[in-house]
């Protein structure tokens, strides 16, 4: 093992021990040092990357090969700097633009990238055109999707017929159960991943200890 690798391994061991010691000793000096090193290095690197790969190329794009239309984004960006001044009302224009565009993008992506494709896929499965699921599986999938959608219905049902209200009630209960199970699965996957990270760090520590102390 080269000296640089040993040095890097030692630093990594020190920082890892500092972070994991939070479990036993809480917020102490070693933990704060390790956390400060990580946060500081990430922040510094982030600033360098943004400056080098984003700001400077876009500024060069305007000045190097004059494209005066690109001055508009820069003007909008500069307006954001007026948040702390009396002209902060101008920055609201930029914020409104950002929020509006972000919302439109989110909705468009959800509709075009999830809702419509999922409706189409569900319909195909229910119609038995899929190769992976049987007809019964497609029907169950379709029914569960409908019930989940019912679970997020919060309108008034007093004027509805009794049978429909009963069906909505049952569908909402089943849909909520499906949502709960889904969230449970997601949480279980998160826990699995976190456990893998812990095992990986413990294995790293054991490898480091074997390397430094035991020599094997």
């Amino acid at each position: 093992m080269m000296l640089s690798e040993l040095l890097g391994l030692g630093v990594a061991l020190f920082l890892t021990m500092g972070i994991l010691s939070y479990v036993l000793f809480g917020n102490h000096e070693l933990f704060r040092i390790a956390a400060a090193v990580f946060v500081g290095s990430v922040a510094g690197y982030l600033g360098a990357v943004v400056l080098r790969s984003f700001l400077i190329p876009r500024l060069w794009q305007v000045t190097g090969s004059p494209q005066w239309a690109l001055l508009l984004p820069w003007a909008l960006a500069l307006l954001l700097l007026l948040r702390g001044t009396r002209l902060r009302g101008l920055s609201n224009v930029v914020l409104a633009l950002l929020v509006g565009v972000a919302g439109a993008t989110l909705i468009a992506g959800a509709v075009l990238g999830t809702l419509f494709p999922q409706i189409e896929a569900t319909w195909r499965e229910w119609a038995g055109f899929t190769l992976h699921l049987s007809w019964a599986q497609g029907l169950v999938s379709w029914v569960l999707v409908m019930m989940v959608l019912m679970a997020f219905y919060f309108g008034r049902t007093e004027t509805w017929p009794r049978v429909m209200r009963w069906g909505i009630g049952v569908g909402q209960k089943v849909g909520k159960a499906v949502v709960v199970v889904t969230l449970g699965v997601l949480f279980a996957r998160v826990y699995q991943v976190a456990l893998l990270a812990l095992i990986d760090r413990l294995a790293f520590l054991w490898d480091a200890i074997r390397t430094f102390l035991l020599g094997w």
Partner: peptide
């Protein structure tokens, strides 16, 4: 990661 699989399934 393993946690992206439930989202990718649909």
């Amino acid at each position: 990661s393993l946690q992206i699989v439930p989202v990718l399934e649909p």
